[in-house]
């Protein structure tokens, strides 16, 4: 939770500094591109070195993977529907949606390849998805099904939304929620960069 607040605060500080002319990014600046390259490299490194998680995936019931796959498919379908009513292309909407509530990484990836305005949409859309999940998890678990809060949470179900899911769906769903969060987490950089190249 503290981490999320710092992330939003960084963005807000940047907006204020930019609006007041305190900070300026030169027109042809490549700083963020190089930082992003380093970021991607380190994200890849942490996935590659995390053999413990990869090994624990192998022990899991392979059917557990049906839920994250459906979450991702549903998300991409829903985002594509959004393109019907919004002035963005279907691939732009799908790239935003495929952040799966992992707003920090998805927004910087999209900013770099699609520009700051879609980056802002990605940041807000994915923060909103996390907020929806935190607010609606108890209702979803009661009136839809215990899997619904996990599907809604996307990539956050292994960390920020895990406590509320555990309370709403029941502690028995914690292992599924963590597995779901990890699969979605790992998919975000690949999905977002793939959809941005389309």
């Amino acid at each position: 939770m503290r981490g999320s607040i710092v992330i939003v605060a960084m963005f807000v500080v940047g907006v204020i500094a930019g609006a007041m002319g305190l900070a300026e990014i030169p027109e042809q600046s490549d700083v963020s591109f190089y930082v992003l390259c380093a970021l991607i490299f380190f994200v890849g490194m942490s996935i590659g070195s995390d053999t413990g998680t990869l090994r624990s995936f192998k022990r899991l019931n392979p059917r557990l993977f049906a839920l994250p796959v459906l979450t991702i498919a549903g998300t991409i379908a829903g985002s594509a529907m959004a393109a019907l009513i919004l002035p963005h292309s279907a691939t732009d909407c799908m790239a935003v949606g495929s952040g799966l509530a992992y707003y920090s990484l998805s927004s910087v990836l999209i900013t770099e390849s699609r520009g700051a305005d879609l980056g802002v949409v990605a940041l807000l859309a994915n923060i909103l998805r996390e907020i929806f999940t935190l607010l609606l998890a108890p209702l979803l678990a009661r009136y839809v099904n215990p899997l619904a809060p996990i599907a809604a949470g996307g990539a956050t179900t292994a960390d920020t939304t895990l406590p509320i899911i555990s309370r709403a769906s029941g502690a028995g769903y914690v292992p599924l929620s963590i597995a779901h969060g990890f699969v979605c987490d790992f998919s975000v950089p690949f999905l977002v960069s793939f959809l941005c190249t389309l």
Binding site: F11, I25, V108, L123
Partner: peptide, 12 residues
């Protein structure tokens, strides 16, 4: 990067 995105948004 989010700080930089913020600056870019704020100055645009």
């Amino acid at each position: 990067l989010l700080l930089l995105l913020g600056v870019e948004v704020g100055s645009n």
